[in-house]
Every structure is written in C-alpha cells, then in structure tokens.
C-alpha cells in the first residue's frame, strides 16, 4: 500500500492489542471497536468497505449504511462445520455480544452463527471456484463471488528450484533448526511474519539462512523447491496455484489444518501435526 502511494491508517495501540478471536464475545470491547471503525468510516467516507472478516467493521458498515464485501474462504461461510455438524465456537461465542450491539444500533439481530454478519454483504473468495469450491446448506441464498487468483503466476525454474522458505513457522534460526537443515543445498529464507516474533529485522544472516519479516514471493518464488508454512489461506492457495510443494504445520488451528489437508488431498503438501 505504501509503495503504491495510497493513503493508509493504522489502528491505535489499544485496538491493535485486542485479539479479535477472543474478544468479540465481550460486548464492551466489541462496542468500543465498532465505534472506532464507525469513526474511521466517517473520516474516510468510502463508497464501499472491503474487510477481512472483521466483525466490528461489518457492524460499523451496516450502521453507516455503507456497502461492504468480506474476504472469505469456505469456513467463513455460514453453516460450515469442520466436523460436518458442529458450528465452531469461534462463530457461536460472540453471537450474544453481537446481538447486544446490533440492538443498540437498531439493526436486526443475527441467528446462532456470527458468520451471518458477513452474509449481509458480498462474500468475496480470493480464488477460483475450481480450486476452492464453496459448499454448504445456505450457499444458494448468499452473495458469494470468486475473484479469481489475486497473484500473477511466477515463472518457475522447475526442477532447478532449490530454495526453501519458512513462512511464519520459525521465529529464529536456533541450533536445532540449523542442525536439521545443514544439508539443504539451496538458500533458506525465514519469514517471521511479525517484527515482534523472534528475529528482529536485520538479524545477521547465518550462512545460507536469511531472516526477514516477509519475503516477496514474486522475487524468490521461482527459486523455491518448497515452502514450510502454517496453513494460512493465502499461503496455502498460492503454493497450490504456483505448483510449490509444501510441508504444512498448522498447530492447533482447525482452519489451517483444513487448508493443509485440502492441499494434501491435491497431492501438493504434507501436513504434520504437533
């Protein structure tokens, strides 16, 4: 965004510190976040809001009467269940708080799944219907749009690709890490993802291991033999789309586990559990 010269705003520290997936069930926290997002919308006066499943921003857009689209994948569509029958707690726990806030704003309440908030606007899937089919009991009544792939396809060096990227799966290069990958022939990149995680930007490279907050896949992608990543939606999709094999370490996160297992079913990844 900065490279494009577009204006940007950053959330204040108290809002950055809120863990949305744990805090939206507290009506006071949610209301404070909605008020912040409403103020942002009044400052910016957009004709449309694109959001990444941010519940208070969706409520703010509803309150301000602004059209919105939410970037989604299958598990963010109402009714999706990892096990086929149970609505994940992520989407049931905040319902009471959401409905309290909606009542204060004189907006119709939602049913027993917070994802119905996203369904009040467009649900945009940043992928193709072939790669990411959306199925579920309510799909026919929802406004779901596949955008197509968002990244240009990198030219690959195919069998000559020798490098390895760790995307948010290692925060530093410790002795165990260095010993395990000492025999890797190509370059090794570590993307910590956040400056607060492990290595600070500018940490000295350790041999062929290079550490950064993020690495540009347009630049290093063609040389990658594989990626070790955490199963996030965008990373999983991009590896599949560009033919980069992956080892997926989803930890305890069900969304990332499901993404990794989809790549595994396509024959493009191996999922390893903790």
């Amino acid at each position: 965004v900065q490279a494009a010269g577009w204006p940007s705003k950053t959330y204040p520290p108290w809002a950055e510190a809120v863990d949305p997936w744990l805090s939206w069930s507290d009506p006071d926290v949610l209301m404070r976040a909605v008020e912040l997002d409403r103020q942002t919308l009044r400052d910016v006066a957009p004709s449309m809001v694109i959001n990444d499943c941010r519940i208070p921003m969706v409520i703010a857009a509803l309150a301000e009467g602004i059209q919105f689209a939410t970037i989604c994948q299958d598990n963010q569509v109402p009714g999706y269940c990892y096990d086929g029958s149970t609505i994940p707690a992520t989407w049931t726990l905040p319902v009471d708080a959401i409905n309290k806030v909606l009542a204060l704003l004189e907006i119709d309440p939602i049913a027993d799944d917070a994802r119905w908030l996203f369904a009040r606007g467009t649900m945009a899937v940043p992928s193709t219907a072939e790669l990411e089919p959306i199925v579920g009991p309510y799909v026919e009544e929802l406004d779901i749009v596949h955008t197509g792939l968002l990244n240009k396809q990198a030219s690959t060096s195919g069998s000559r690709a020798a490098d390895l990227l760790f995307y948010r799966t290692a925060g530093s290069a410790d002795e165990e890490f260095l010993a395990a990958f000492a025999d890797w022939n190509g370059s090794i990149y570590i993307a910590t993802g956040e400056t607060m995680v492990g290595a600070a930007p500018g940490e000295p490279s350790r041999g062929r291991v290079q550490i950064g907050t993020l690495w540009d896949l347009d630049a290093i992608g063609p040389g990658l033999r594989a990626v070790v990543h955490h199963g996030g939606h965008g990373t999983t999709l991009r590896c599949i789309a560009e033919g980069i094999p992956a080892v997926v370490l989803p930890g305890p996160n069900p969304e990332r586990t499901a993404n990794g297992e989809r790549a595994e079913r396509l024959g493009r990844a191996i999922v390893m559990h903790a």
Binding site: G158, S159, R168, A170, G193, L224, V247, I270
Partner: peptide, 27 residues
Amino acid sequence: GPAVDVTGDRPAWSDVRAALDHLPPRL
C-alpha cells in the same frame, strides 16, 4: 483466521526436514 503461529507447537525440525524429501516435484 486466528493469527496464531505454530512456533513452539510443531514437530521436531529433523522430522520436518525428513518430510521435505517426500514432497512431489516442483511444477
């Protein structure tokens, strides 16, 4: 989704290294 990284909640790096040898070729 929830922004929790897996650092500290993962297999041993030596097991990850071994898994890399079983991946399909780069397309």
